[in-house]
Nucleic acid binder design. Sequence first.
RNA 1: GGGAGCUUAGCUCAGUUGGUAGAGCAUCUGCCUUACAAGCAGAGGGUCACAGGUUCGAGUCCUGUAGCUCCCACCA
Length: 799
Amino acid sequence: MLEKRYDFKTREKHWQDYWHEHNTYKFDENAESKFTIDTPPPTISGVIHLGHVFSYTQTDVIARHQRMLGKSVFYPFGYDDNGLPTERYVIKEQKVRLNETNRSDFIKLCLETTEKMKDVYRDVFTRAGHSSDFDSAYSSISPRTQAISQRSFIELYNAGEIERRNSATLWCPECRTAIAQSEIETVEMDSTMNYLNFGILDSDEKLQIATTRPELLCACVCVFVHPDDEKRAHLVGKKAITPIYNVEVPILANPDVDREKGTGAVMCCTFGDEADAKWQKEFNLPVLEGIGHNGRMTEIAGEFAGQKVTEARANIIEKLKEIGVLYDTKPITHAVSPHERCSTPIEIMVKPQWFIKLLEHKDEIYKAGEEVNWYPEYTKKRFLNWVEGLKWDWCISRQRFFGIPFPVWYCKDCGATILADIDDLPVDPTVTQPKHECPHCYGKSFIPETDVMDTWATSSLTPQICADTLTHKGLDDAHLPMDLRPNAHDNIRVWDFYTIAKSLLHYKKLPWNNVMVSGWGLSATGDKLSKSKTSKGELTPLVAFEKYSADVTRYWASNATLGKDVFIQEEEFNNGSKLMQKLWNASRFVLSFLEGYTPKKCELLPMDQWIIDTYRITFKNFKKYLEKFEMGLALNELEKLFWNFCDNYIEIAKNRLYKPEIYGEKAKESAQYASSMVLLGMLKMFSIYMPHITEEIYQDYYAKIEGCDSIHLSKYLDLGDAPSVVFGGYRVCDIVGEVRKFKSQNNMSMKDEIAKIVVKDDDRNLDFIKSCLDDIKAVCNIKDVEFIKSNNFSVDIEK
RNA sequence: GGGAGCUUAGCUCAGUUGGUAGAGCAUCUGCCUUACAAGCAGAGGGUCACAGGUUCGAGUCCUGUAGCUCCCACCA
């Protein structure tokens, strides 16, 4: 017998422990039917907020759904504790100054910090009732992961897909490292367009140049004009003289120049932007480093040396004004590209970096993106759009400490690149030396590569890292393609993109067949939830679990439309609380009539057949939506059935359940069968959203009946096809509705008696209605019912 | 400038192949009815952003316009 009230505060914990002890969610590799999920390892360097719970719950619902379909679900878990996000977190939290610590101490501190964070994350997801395998969770910095990642590097290097180049790279002056295209954002910023006069060698003419980056004058290597620019044609081949620095630079013709922009003449600096980098290569221009790796002006900036870029810009504008070179300046807004981690505008720098060749594989990646099933479908275009706009190869080297090292040394004598042996992985080249002498010059001294790899170089291997927890084969294509990659929309162009790229480079296979894209949980004001701090009044996961329960939190999370952001509004949680309470009460009521009863098929009364028919339809729609990962729409379908079950069916059936002496034992049995089966079926469907309360109810009665340890090890209830009496049943509900309306409008109590109703309808419906006469009379407390044949349905009521 | 999404009741949002507009919250009315008064039964409330088009019929398909959001490009 279920208690009067369901105490989620103790029962949720109870069932979480129960599932853990019973290995309820254990994956069986030898199962006939499997479903594999490439779970996103959360970046654990920061606060875990409801946004995490939002999207991870959606994945858990899918995992549970697949289990209820009878599949064994591979639902691994991992922690992304590797790389720059962790470094930044540790520096901030532990107040570390990088120049006051050494590499190994710092790495140790990073490891210690992330170890604590793992427990926090695991606790929240466990308490959210997630069914992933936390016990064999991987870490993206663990030796095992390092070995897989390094092996990927070596294999792609040997395949000619990776090379080290000394070329222009996106550079973050704040983090002092190279970064990749996917790590930059675009932000509108206020700036000024500055119009300067350049001198012309051996001439009094002036050449007008517009620039937003006057601080780069010191790195100006040439001036371009358009080849068809008649006004300036005579200048091509001459020398321009830069203001302040008085350096002679060539004036060249370049068809890339847009004559409508600025003054129509461009100064090319190395490097102000990507166009400069392109032109430097095309015209084989010298490279002048005006900005250092630390984001400060270099010696060639003369009096501005040592200043930060923004300072130098302001100062040089003043100076240009002073000397009369700046003849105009206009405020503008333009897009700049800041680094997503620190919001510092990126620069372009030249330094040897490691690149994975992506540009030459653009077509393959595009095709793969087309082959993957994206849910919702429009997210495919977002992926393809990103691939189309790809402009840089993937720079995977980072000038940082806490990351996976490159398994690489350079021969001191001949400079040859020496790779570690695969059997020795993982290696840290700063700690160990190559086993053999240099194969080229037989040198015995080596310089280690001190850069570490981009975190995405590792995260893009999650299908392999996950599979390895089962196969222990390391980098391998076992389980490829997996069934599902779930992630939020911000990761389409990052994690999804890199994973597809790597999978193609290694195996020419898709990493997974389906991608499910969730939205974000946003604060009530519509802001992105911060990972660095919890803002005032923000509902945190633990508070939500305490106040509303995990099941209600899950209900909120899964009641969303795929791919769409939602605001975190506590009112939405109230709806979940009400549903949970209703589910409890309805179950308590139904189960109270099932003591000593074992469900067995029997001849069903029409309204009992009706509720089973509506169940069948709902179940079908429910599965159809979940096939497309639309768990929110599936939930809506289920809720409609549930409320119909409560408002109409139970009200009708209760009389027969209470009073077999009036309506007969058979009428009771029929109601027992239908109510027990439909409730069971609904509990199973609800179980993927609200695993705790459904387990509690299931264990009270159904576990014994089905001989099953947990509702989560059972399968959905299939009550067959061919619904027959759906319409008639709803017509009976209409009649009941009319009577309720009548009582309501006449200020009557629902139990008050009605003397007589007259039902008009066609023959077919009247036949069905007549067959439910006892139910109708009982639920409405009507003494007499009269039937009149008519083409139009109506109900007349007499007090 | 390119791509995508959104615009439906006061609020938050559903509306699968085109067929008389839906839910929750809020508002109003009634009801202690043997699961549930943080409940139940009802009611009111929408020219489905706008303008065209296809169709017997369009919230749903097509074209265009406007506003909001996201991604990308634009840094001369």
